[in-house]
Amino acid sequence: MKKLLRKVMVVFAAMVMVLGMTACSSKDSGSADNKVIVGFDNTFVPMGFLDEDGNTVGFDVDLAKETFERLGMEVEFQPIDWSMKETELNSGNVDVLWNGYSLSQERKKIVSYSDPYLQNKQIIVTMADSNINKKADLAGKEVGTQQESTAQAAVETDTEFVSSLKGGAPVLYDTYDKALRDLEIGRTSAVAGDEVLIRYYMSQKGEDKYKVLEENFGLEDYVVAFAKDNTELRDKVNDTLKEIKDDGTFDEIYAKWFK
């Protein structure tokens, strides 16, 4: 009888342990599912950047906050090396890329993505007092852009243009902020990049200091990027973005950042 009682107690203790571990696992899983980490470039004005007080702000930041609040999810913004963004996403270090992420044919192959929510143009900017007025005027000169950006891809796709540049390639920077500062001090003759960023940058520094060429590298769409297999979160974000557009909240956020 004593042996039987001991066996029952051992089995009962084991069951309690297993149930306890299962409960903890379920709790941890629920907590993880309720939090989303957004990877972003914290210098990409006005989409996602740090203000003078070190706060994470921007159009995409406000839009992401509104989206995940409606989904009942906690959101954390994680600054990343933008040239490594897809690696960060597909390795699971971040859950989404939401920071002026332009859709391209190459990117379609490696990420899952939302419906487009904003249109952008890849433009060329130079200083107002330069004698550069068209692409052809940049022959033999240096043009800066952000590394692993769609602007870099657009420049390099225009084979005639890129082959005419000094060195036969654009000058690459890890942020547009650095590229634009080099333009201002004369290290490069122009910068190719996202219109939303360049126009905002110009508005902060004084638009009369710069000149945007009429020629550009075409239109593109901004999307939210997810890991290839994360279609569940993608679909939730898509549905919520539609709600935000339909009820006018999107227009309010847009007006705040693009006056």
Rank of each mutant, 00 (worst) to 15 (best):
F68S: 03
M73P: 04
A153Y: 08
D115T: 12
R199Y: 09
G186P: 05
Y222M: 10
N230H: 12
M17Q: 10
A192S: 14
E195Y: 05
Y101I: 13
S163R: 15
Q78R: 15
D28S: 05
F161M: 03
E243F: 09
T159K: 15
E142R: 15
S163N: 14
G30A: 12
A225M: 10
A23P: 07
D246G: 08
V57N: 00
G48C: 08
Y113N: 08
A128M: 12
T249G: 02
D33R: 07
V75W: 14
D251G: 03
Q147K: 15
V16D: 08
L19R: 13
D60W: 00
E88H: 09
E252A: 09
L89Y: 07
Q152D: 02
K108C: 03
G20H: 03
F217Y: 05
G20C: 06
E160A: 05
Y117Q: 00
L172Y: 02
K35C: 12
V8K: 03
V57S: 00
M47W: 01
A225Y: 02
V125W: 02
L4N: 09
W82R: 02
S91P: 06
A136S: 13
K2Q: 13
Q146K: 04
W82G: 02
F226V: 02
A32W: 06
A169Y: 13
G144D: 05
E184R: 11
L4I: 14
K134L: 09
K27H: 12
L219G: 15
P116F: 01
P170D: 07
L97I: 11
G206S: 03
V196P: 07
E106G: 12
Y173W: 07
K245H: 13
A13R: 13
L5Q: 06
L5S: 06
S83L: 02
F49Y: 12
D194A: 15
I110C: 04
K242I: 15
T249Y: 08
F12G: 15
D81S: 09
V61I: 08
V61T: 07
E195R: 14
M47K: 02
A190S: 06
M21K: 05
S91F: 05
M127S: 05
D53I: 00
I198E: 08
R187L: 11
S189W: 10
K259H: 10
D41T: 00
A139F: 08
S25Q: 10
G167D: 13
V61E: 00
E214D: 13
E243Y: 10
D174I: 11
D41G: 01
A23L: 14
V18C: 07
L233A: 09
A225S: 10
G58P: 02
E232A: 15
D115N: 14
K259M: 14
T150Q: 07
N238M: 05
F217H: 04
